[in-house]
């Protein structure tokens, strides 16, 4: 079941820890009511919450273009995608809830800035091509990150990720198709696609997090099998995937140092501007205030809907729990 109170209060912590360690080592999944180290629980809550917040904040930059989509087909696709992001947020909030952290608490922490979301969503969507670049690059990077999470040691998180990854595949492909249409279009459309890729490429590489040497949570998360691959490993995988895809699009990636390294069997790529990453993380990105402001406003303006639903349930006595 999902939200039973965990069996805690055991005196024999060492014994429980041994069972937990053995389960993780044997590639078994940890389930909500199992004993788990406090730090494991806290790490999962932090990561799942940040992930859930990213999904719902991520609705904003794309929703920005729904009313201006160039055709009914594109509009229907974009609406379905944005709706999926809401769904992904809900799967993840449910997973976090199995660890004993309520949804309202998580939303409060998002609204008050105590929990973060992926800094990629603090960049603006300036043109229609940005919708394509987000699908191809941002969702592509997310998929690269998320596929290994389907094997995460915590069962509810892994199960949520299986659903999410299935659905993300459409997100990435629609973005690629959108960019391809622009790239093969008029000169102005091609330029618009190239400009979007130029702006989204580096922030997408930053989505994998700081270099391994500076990543504070990585080693422990790997030991717990929450994380399966290092930040740099996943970033490299993403670059290698994107290079031929960019060529098929007829677009270039904005990195003069990007080239195939025969010896490594991988692409070398240029240095990432981590100062920019830290600045955006610190709240100084182009859209940080706008994103959180919009989220708070949506929550407040939706209060009457929640109240009405609750009043209806109370009046008709259908709430059974």
């Amino acid at each position: 079941m999902t939200t039973m109170a965990p069996d805690t209060g055991a005196q024999d912590t060492a014994g429980y820890e041994a069972v937990f360690d053995a389960a993780v080592a044997a590639e078994e999944r940890i389930e909500p009511r199992d004993w788990m180290p406090d730090a494991y629980r806290a790490t999962l809550v932090r990561q799942i919450a940040q992930h859930a917040h990213s999904e719902i904040i991520g609705m904003q930059p794309e929703a920005n273009w729904i009313t201006r989509a160039p055709s009914l087909r594109r509009k229907a696709i974009l609406m379905a995608k944005v709706q999926d992001e809401a769904g992904h947020g809900l799967y993840l909030y449910s997973a976090a809830e199995t660890l004993g952290t309520g949804r309202d608490e998580l939303l409060d922490k998002l609204h008050s800035g105590r929990q973060k979301y992926s800094s990629i969503f603090n960049y603006p969507t300036l043109t229609w091509a940005d919708v394509g670049a987000i699908g191809w690059l941002v969702d592509g990077a997310a998929i690269t990150n998320q596929v290994p999470l389907c094997r995460c040691s915590y069962g509810p998180y892994a199960r949520a990720m299986v659903r999410i990854c299935k659905e993300e595949s459409f997100h990435q492909r629609q973005g690629y198709e959108l960019l391809l249409a622009l790239s093969r279009g008029t000169e102005a459309q091609h330029a618009m696609a190239q400009d979007a890729v130029n702006r989204w490429w580096w922030p997408s590489l930053m989505m994998f997090g700081p270099p391994d040497a500076e990543s504070s949570h990585s080693a422990q998360s790997m030991a717990w099998k929450i994380k399966r691959h290092s930040n740099d490993e996943l970033r490299q995988r993403f670059v290698d995937i994107c290079v031929p895809q960019a060529a098929s699009l007829g677009l270039t990636l904005p990195d003069p140092d990007l080239r195939w390294n025969e010896e490594r069997g991988q692409h070398d790529f240029g240095a990432i501007d981590w100062t920019e990453f830290q600045e955006v993380l610190r709240g100084n990105g182009p859209c940080n205030d706008q994103r959180i402001g919009q989220r708070r406003r949506a929550h407040e303006e939706g209060a009457w809907v929640r109240e009405a639903a609750a009043a209806y349930a109370a009046k008709h006595g259908k709430a059974t729990a």
């Binding site: 999902t2 939200t3 769904g87 809900l90 799967y91 449910s94 809830e97 949804r103 199960r159 949520a160 639903a309 609750a310 209806y312 349930a313 109370a314 008709h316 259908k318 709430a319 059974t320």
Partner: peptide, 19 residues
């Protein structure tokens, strides 16, 4: 399939359909 919050059974069904 998973879980969700809803004020009553009817809304739970609708939300489950959408989710």
């Amino acid at each position: 399939a998973g879980s969700l919050h809803a004020p009553d059974a009817e809304m739970a069904l609708r939300n489950a359909r959408d989710l």
